[in-house]
Design a protein around this nucleic acid. Sequence first.
DNA 1: TATGAATGAGGGTTCATTCAT
DNA 2: CATGAATGAACCCTCATTCAT
Lengths: 201, 201, 201, 201
Amino acid sequence: MGKVEENKKKKKDAIVNSAFSLFINNGINDTSIADIMKKAELAKGTFYLYFKDKYEVRDYLIRRKATQVFERAIEDLEASDIEEFDDKIIFIIDNVLDQLDGNKILLKFIFKNLSWGLFRHSMEHVQVYDSEGQIDIFGKFNELTDGKIRNVEMLLFLIVELVSSTAYSVILYKQPVELPELKEELYPVIRQMIHLYTIND
Amino acid sequence: MGKVEENKKKKKDAIVNSAFSLFINNGINDTSIADIMKKAELAKGTFYLYFKDKYEVRDYLIRRKATQVFERAIEDLEASDIEEFDDKIIFIIDNVLDQLDGNKILLKFIFKNLSWGLFRHSMEHVQVYDSEGQIDIFGKFNELTDGKIRNVEMLLFLIVELVSSTAYSVILYKQPVELPELKEELYPVIRQMIHLYTIND
Amino acid sequence: MGKVEENKKKKKDAIVNSAFSLFINNGINDTSIADIMKKAELAKGTFYLYFKDKYEVRDYLIRRKATQVFERAIEDLEASDIEEFDDKIIFIIDNVLDQLDGNKILLKFIFKNLSWGLFRHSMEHVQVYDSEGQIDIFGKFNELTDGKIRNVEMLLFLIVELVSSTAYSVILYKQPVELPELKEELYPVIRQMIHLYTIND
Amino acid sequence: MGKVEENKKKKKDAIVNSAFSLFINNGINDTSIADIMKKAELAKGTFYLYFKDKYEVRDYLIRRKATQVFERAIEDLEASDIEEFDDKIIFIIDNVLDQLDGNKILLKFIFKNLSWGLFRHSMEHVQVYDSEGQIDIFGKFNELTDGKIRNVEMLLFLIVELVSSTAYSVILYKQPVELPELKEELYPVIRQMIHLYTIND
DNA sequence: TATGAATGAGGGTTCATTCAT
DNA sequence: CATGAATGAACCCTCATTCAT
């Protein structure tokens, strides 16, 4: 990477990090581009060399952050020796929930803005490597199911929406219960859902 | 109600209706108080005699609209002769989804802003009447379960979050499928969930 | 006129006068709305209660200023006892040129921006009063010709364009000659033009 | 011309041509240096190696374009066998008007910015060649008059201003008439003007 | 020479809020 | 109570110009 390119990367990162910090502290509506650039210690006009508006920054951030969270969950999964498909799903959910429970700000930011489209997009960009190089995560999921799950995307959709919306309420507002209790209730439901989508031989 | 009171009610309604129409057409961020009052055909200063800011109007509206939707669903349920608990739940969900499918704007407005807390609050204000007068809707639910459901609130929480978040994506963005297909997948899952919460004698 | 109306008139005048002074000193391009309102000692936002942008102010000004100049020329004409049509035309031209020679700034402003359309519009708004009240100036012109001029508008068009464009160069840049010499050359040409449009009995 | 010189000429031409196209399409005020250089496919900073600002480009362009139009008119005149002085003047006017009628954009650009000074300057740079080489166009005019016209410059000044200002209004806004009708009225007037400046033996 | 990333002043515009009427 | 003219802070965005490469 040339010196110029490197510098540009550094600037973009400064903008993005500044924006993230302000978005989660003050909300997107109360964050102006002037604020972002001031915190990033760059000139206001520089913003427009990298992004069209603050919503483009937000989308960029959501994708990046969501990707990071899942990347870590999957790394941890790889490091474990879990074998069954449903156990793997529960493991990932549990891992993600714990990550977000420890970083409510991030949770708020991701789940408040996450749409299924963005989620899919993020998943397609999760970078996992094994001995043979990069792995396509959605392909991997399908492979994991071993052909035993019908309509994998729908199942994931249902699980992701259920988990994200309940966890949002629970972690942020502790309503109607706290996280451990939610998990206790949620996981059996999810196992049952997976079972419903499992093809019986 | 005195003439003065009546007049004030009329003004407040004008503001609220104007705001609703603008919120759903242009979004809350792109709606100014000037816009609201122009459409309401009232002076700008008058706004502050009724509300503190536009977010107060929004919250007022969400509660009112969500309540209306459920009120109608429950009215329709009462008019039917459905007997089983799970059938009743499915009926209400189906009814609400159809209402919102026919009014995407309303869906966006309600679900974008609906939290479990607001939902509970709305439910407590649903006005249903039988021969003996007004009925408490949450109490009614409990009664309906006939003591056969454990942890009714958790079950409702899971169902409401699952339905609202999947329906939001599906009705608004047709992602990942369209509404009829979602229903087909959703209802068996919900029945299964109810079953999971049913106390076996 | 109510107190409010009176105040609004005063504000509009302040804006317009401030703008005129800045337009002629710095040019329209180098005059910002902030400049105008600062000089007018009003808040920046107030500008938009009266005008859409500075070009609207410019057009308003041109019409007003052009009208004033002609109004005065015609007043002077009325006070004289000139009888012949061509003498009257020359008198008006001479009067206008003298006014503008004494106010180059105004000349620059009017002639730089004057189109035939704006000129006609201005003429239609010249307010001249005689013992019997207001007079329509274009009608008056026609009347003056006593039916002896064919195609009055074309004749006026030719004269106005010839006079304004030559005078602009001469008064502002003294090119290619100075005003007295221009007059000496111009008036015979104009008399000849009038003659060409005079219907011979 | 060395290869370096050639390259510089090419760059300058690219800038100038890009600027012309943008000036006439969007107006000078709405054309930024960034726009010009983007269209010219050159770096922004390069602009300042050739011009001080966009107004310098504009002046350069006006001179070049005005010169071209007159050059062509005079070429056409040379190719004809018109003999009388007044016929020649009318021929040139007619030719120029037709050129500009077919290219309103050019007309707008030239006449909006043309001053008598710029016109004289342009005329001095019109390049006409006969068997003996380059000809001075103003000298040529004087020669053409055969000493029969007094005050040639004044006559040209009056004619140029009359024609350019009326044609501007007529071609661009069709006010107060269209071009053929303007010609019909204009040419007799001009012939008469020439006659007025012709020395009677 | 040529580049184009970076600058930051300054433009236009909006708008919540106030307050004299 | 109701009005709407006035405010001025705050916003977004553009752009001529510089300068390290």
